[in-house]
Amino acid sequence: MPVSSITHATAGPPARTEAAIEASELTKTYGSGATAVPALSGVSFSVPAGTVFGLLGPNGAGKSTTTKILTTLSGADSGTATVAGYDVARQGAQVRHAIGYVPQKPCFDPTATGHENLTLQGRIYGIPIREIRRRAGELLAQFGLADAAGRVAKTWSGGMQRKLDVALALIHRPQVLFLDEPTTGLDPEARADMWAEISELTDADGLTVLLTTHYLEEADNLADRLVIVDRGRVVATGTPEELKAELAGDTVHVQLADPADRERALGAFESVEGVHQVTAEESTLNARVGNGAAVLPKALAALDARDVLLASVTVARPSLDDVYLRHAGRSFRTADQIDSMEAAR
């Protein structure tokens, strides 16, 4: 994949590299001494140019910290990273010209119109005004914002405002786009709309997209490749299909009528042939099994023999939740809740 030239860069050609982003052993700790909070403890990954790359993990896993280091907003304690071939620590100015960044929080100006927002952003990148007008018109049309472009942005819907944030990051045709939790806080319809826009971005200009999300289905839907991050470490890497395929067979989810039966239920499952791994959390059991259809009757018989009452049973192909469960040793939903509670403290 050829890397297009950077018109605004001021010094030095980029180092030859195939990957749009290369992160190696990044570490970062906030604070020091007794109050030190480790955020990253050795994160490495490589993003091929022209792809959507997902950084998936629960709240507080280190996704935003990683993004901030790659966008030069923050510095790593150790480790190296290149973006568009430029070293984030030593060639910050070139990196900033080559990237677009959509932070987790909204960043459009609510008192300015769509056109005014895009014009100011274009001027910051030194783009001639004619070219800004053309490019702004193109982006507003692409994101379905053309009709609202003359109104101040605070009157727009949440979904439209978020699309404006993305359009702002694209005004200078960056090589790499960072999207930090792009659909958090959007209603389901606006989220689906945003997914459609994001999946078209890489087709158009050979753009590379790094997407952080704590929505499993978002990563599954959009990412060509992804890493799962947990507590500052990369616990799994691959395409969503590869990651799910690693978990051979099916998953059986059992909801117990009474959480007190958990140990007995666990024993029952472990006694059944064809069950590879069982984990239990509160009243839920998750079992990875070879062939769901063959194992299920035996498992139900074993549970019945031990007088375990069930609320529900489902058999499913493995999801990214199961992938996360296997690598992080806890379910994604639990981790997300626990870690956001810790973050709030």
Partner: peptide, 14 residues
């Protein structure tokens, strides 16, 4: 800072 404006500006050529 409360919005994402500061972070976006600091990752731009400004």
């Amino acid at each position: 800072m409360n919005r994402g404006v500061m972070d976006r500006n600091l990752t731009s050529p400004l």
